[in-house]
């Protein structure tokens, strides 16, 4: 198989021109753009090599190991993006990802690949798209919740001292965090097809797939991402909230 790396050169030149143009005004930003472009190129090429090897196997175990690796990375990203320190945040994001995203990816794969649903070639791209797209929503939602708790915990104490349960006393922060996390997804769904054509659908259209087939698959993907994001945020928020309280009910910010 011939790998057409040379076809990338116009794109590389484009980014390099951007770097040259912005270097004088915003040197740091220009360097960051160049670094990000370099990283994305290398990472995707490496991914292609890795996937080629992984796709040779049709074992569910291989698919699950790679899925776990992706999920661990996604949880790691949530920790890196988080400015607030919460004990067990890594495990909380890992569990919420596994509980929310994995079943959706499995069902989605069963829908489009039927009996071959567990094959890496079917399941892994779906898992990757779901994890990647839900990541920022979970991250934003958790950040909002933890920031509210750190900065405004007197609001929670006030409601607790009025006899409110943990759920009642934290419901304002909880719902604000859910909303903050899911809003970018809602905006993206509203602009879908009017302002934007997402990458997956564009890829299919370019490779001359039927427009209806491409759009149905994209609808499934958008609805899955939305469900996965809200579920993942909800599960993670419940765990984080639990970690803020003792089992006896006292507020305990560590």
């Amino acid at each position: 198989m011939i790998i057409k790396f040379y076809s990338l050169w116009p794109y590389v030149v484009g980014i390099f021109l951007i770097y040259v143009f912005f270097r004088k005004q915003q040197n740091k930003l220009a360097k960051e753009i160049l670094w990000a472009s370099f990283r994305t190129t290398i990472q995707l090429i490496l991914l292609a090599f890795a996937l080629q090897e992984i796709f040779k196997s049709n074992l569910l175990a291989v698919t699950l190991i790679v899925s776990l690796f992706m999920t661990l990375n996604s949880s790691g990203q949530i920790i890196l993006r988080s400015k607030q320190k919460v004990i067990n945040l890594f495990w909380i994001s890992l569990v919420s990802n596994v509980l929310a995203i994995w079943p959706i990816a499995f069902l989605f794969s069963m829908d489009i690949a039927q009996a071959d649903w567990f094959e890496p070639q079917k399941l892994l791209p779906l898992m990757g798209m779901l994890l990647g797209n839900t990541l920022s929503g979970v991250s934003i939602g958790l950040e909002s919740f933890m920031r509210d708790f750190r900065e405004k915990n007197n609001e929670v104490l006030t409601l607790m001292s009025l006899g409110g349960t943990i759920e009642e006393s934290t419901s304002k922060f909880f719902h604000r965090a859910l909303r903050a996390g899911i809003t970018p997804q809602i905006n993206s769904m509203i602009s879908m097809g009017i302002i934007s054509i997402p990458g997956m659908m564009a890829g299919q259209l370019i490779s001359k797939a039927n427009a209806f087939d491409a759009s149905i698959l994209q609808i499934k993907m958008m609805l899955s991402i939305c469900t996965g994001t809200i579920l993942s945020i909800y599960i993670a928020l419940r765990f984080v909230r639990k970690s803020f309280f003792l089992s006896t009910g006292e507020l305990c910010l560590k």
Binding site: K152, L157, M160, S161, L162, G163, T165, E250
Partner: peptide, 16 residues
């Protein structure tokens, strides 16, 4: 615990 708190009401310095 909620009943104990409704017997003993704490009012924090900042009004939330």
């Amino acid at each position: 615990i909620e009943m104990w708190r409704s017997k003993i009401t704490y009012l924090p310095p900042e009004v939330c």
